[in-house]
Design a protein around this nucleic acid. Structure first.
Length: 232
DNA sequence: TAGGCCATCTGGTCCT
DNA sequence: AGGACCAGATGGCCTA
C-alpha cells in the first residue's frame, strides 16, 4: 500500500510547511533550535520510513510534491523576536510529538489488524479465500465460538448420559456466554444447539440464521464450510 | 454515483 | 511526561 504520497502531501505536510519546516523562503537558521530541527527532520524521515505509502492518494492541486522540489530547506530569519522563536519552538515540539503519536497509532492499528487477520485465519469461510470485513470477522468469530462451545456441551452431555450431570469441560448453563456480552446484552438466549454446530449451523447465539447482522450473506447457512484447522 | 470499508490523522482521556 | 486507547473526521478505493 502506498500512503507516502499522502504523508508528505497531507495536511500534516501542510502544517510542516506552515511551521516553516518546508517553507520556501525562511531565513537563515536559528542557532538555538538547530538541534531540534535536525531531530525533527530525522523524525520525519523516520515516520516516512515507518509509514510506507499505503495507497496512492490523488493530490488535488498537486499536493505532495512540494518537498521534492526543494533540495535544502532554507533557514529561518535571523532577526526573529525571541518570543516568536520560543512560540515557534513550542509549536515544533508539539508537532514532533504529534508525529510520534501518529506513528504509534499507526503501529497500534497495524497490530490490531494483524490480530484480526490471525482471527480470520482460523475462521471457516466459503469460498475459502473470501475475506471477512472487520465487523464480520468479529461477529462471525463470536458465533463460531458459541457454536463450538455448544458442540462440546452436547457432546459432553451425550457422553455422561441422560442425567447430564456434569459436562466438566463445558461452560455450565447460566455461566457467562459470549452472547451475554455481545451487542450490548441484547443477544438472544442460545437456541437449541445443533449437533453440527461446528459446521456453522443456523443456530446462533445472537441472531437468527437469516440475520445478516450475524450471518453475513457470504457466510449465511449454506454448504457447510470446512472446519478450521484448529476445530479439527 | 452512492454507500461500504478502510487507513490515517488528530485531539482527548486515562494510565504508568 | 509519555504512551496507550479511543472516537470523530477525512479522503481514497471498490462495488452494486
Amino acid at each position: 500500500m502506498l500512503v507516502k504520497a499522502e504523508v508528505l502531501a497531507t495536511p500534516a505536510e501542510d502544517e510542516l510547511l506552515l511551521l516553516g519546516l518546508g517553507s520556501p523562503a525562511p531565513s537563515p537558521s536559528l542557532p538555538s533550535s538547530a538541534e531540534e530541527e535536525e531531530e525533527e527532520e530525522e523524525e520525519e524521515e523516520e515516520e516516512l520510513r515507518a509509514a510506507p505509502p499505503a495507497r496512492p492518494v490523488d493530490a488535488p492541486g498537486g499536493r505532495g510534491l512540494r518537498r521534492a522540489e526543494g533540495k535544502r530547506r532554507p533557514g529561518r530569519s535571523r532577526g526573529a523576536p525571541r518570543a516568536a522563536r520560543t512560540a515557534e519552538t513550542a509549536q515544533r515540539i508539539k508537532r514532533s510529538r504529534r508525529l510520534k503519536a501518529n506513528n504509534r497509532e499507526r503501529n497500534r492499528m497495524h497490530n490490531l489488524n494483524a490480530a484480526l487477520d490471525a482471527l480470520r485465519d482460523v475462521l471457516p469461510t466459503f469460498p475459502e479465500d473470501a475475506k471477512l470485513t472487520k465487523i464480520e470477522t468479529l461477529r462471525f468469530a463470536h458465533n463460531y465460538i458459541w457454536a463450538l462451545t455448544e458442540t462440546l456441551r452436547l457432546a459432553g452431555a451425550a457422553r455422561l448420559g441422560p442425567d447430564g450431570a456434569a459436562a466438566a469441560a463445558v461452560p455450565a448453563e447460566g455461566s457467562p456466554s459470549p452472547a451475554s456480552s455481545w451487542s450490548g446484552g441484547s443477544a438472544s438466549p442460545a437456541p437449541s444447539a445443533s449437533p453440527y454446530a461446528c459446521t456453522l449451523s443456523p443456530a446462533s447465539p445472537a441472531g437468527s440464521a437469516s440475520d445478516p447482522e450475524h450471518w453475513p450473506g457470504r457466510f449465511a447457512p449454506g454448504p457447510p464450510p470446512p472446519l478450521p484447522r484448529r476445530c479439527l
